[in-house]
């Protein structure tokens, strides 16, 4: 009896929590399809469906361009992090060389460092390089990630040394070993780093706000943030919500498809503390 009540209570809590997490998103998406005057009301379902809000967003800001920028930047950063960080992770885990421990120390130090310290000098650096309003400013600072190196180092350590030694005997170069032997054996680490890097790059907004001013160079979150707080939405709530929906949907779709990987990789990232 008590068990049954407890069980019921559990489901009640879970259902309440699920509703709390999902309802605002449902409200937002339906809000974008409502006529402007209905959005503030309590009624969830629109009386008539309209795409006016989306039409207005597309006519006012270059959403397609921002989507392309975000895709390009996130893809290049992810590719670069996978490549460069796994190389360093490999060196740190499987090779011995002078200064390895120092480099490992540097790595841990980098991870502890709050970004506030480097933010302003980084901005100055970008200005001096003439990288303001360029893809370089968005990509280059993110090309290597200390956290990714750490994950790769951890993962590569579990690979049996015999495999690597015999490959060396067969005359494989180190990079060949990494990409031919280590990578195929480290899919979970690659997926984790890939998803994390992509999502974080896609969602980052502070850095683009600082280094990008040209509207045609803006990423999605930046453009949507400026559209919503700046004057361009002309104070039409439907437009603001539509812009937010356009920003959220690609990641939500990716999440629904790769849900298992998303949750696992995010959970791994949590353990870095």
């Amino acid at each position: 009896m008590i068990r049954a009540i407890l069980k019921g209570l559990f489901y009640l809590v879970l259902a309440g929590a699920a509703a709390t997490f999902l309802y605002p998103f449902i409200w937002m998406v339906l809000g974008t399809l409502k006529p402007e005057v209905e959005i503030a009301g309590l009624k969830l379902w629109p009386s008539t469906f309209t795409l006016e809000s989306y039409r207005a967003v597309f006519s006012k800001i270059p959403v397609g361009r921002a989507f392309f920028n975000s895709m390009l930047v996130s893809t290049l950063v992810t590719a670069s992090v996978l490549l460069l960080s796994s190389i360093t992770g490999y060196a740190l885990s499987r090779l011995t060389f002078k200064g390895r421990d120092i480099i490992f120390g540097l790595l841990l130090f980098t991870m502890m460092l709050p970004f506030q310290i480097t933010l302003i000098p980084m901005y100055v650096l970008m200005v001096k390089f003439h990288w303001i309003d360029t893809y370089q400013a968005l990509i280059v600072p993110a090309m290597v990630s200390a956290f990714a190196i750490l994950i790769f180092r951890q993962s590569f350590k579990t690979i049996p040394g015999d495999l690597i030694d015999s490959a060396r005997l067969d005359g494989c170069g180190e990079l060949e070993i990494l990409f031919r032997i280590i990578w195929p054996l480290s899919k979970p680490a690659l997926i984790t780093v890939g998803i994390l890097t992509f999502v974080n790059t896609w969602n980052d907004v502070l850095w683009p706000i600082i280094v990008i001013r040209d509207q045609s160079m803006m990423t999605m979150p930046q453009m949507v943030a400026l559209y919503a707080v700046g004057g361009q939405a002309e104070a039409q709530v439907g437009n603001i919500l539509a812009a937010a929906t356009l920003l959220a949907v690609p990641i939500i779709i990716a999440y629904l498809i790769f849900q298992k990987y998303f949750i696992e990789s995010m959970a791994t990232s949590g353990l870095k503390g």
Partner: peptide, 12 residues
């Protein structure tokens, strides 16, 4: 469901 807001941009 609980995890959905985690992946969505803070701007949204």
């Amino acid at each position: 469901a609980f995890f959905l807001p985690v992946v969505v941009s803070g701007v949204v």
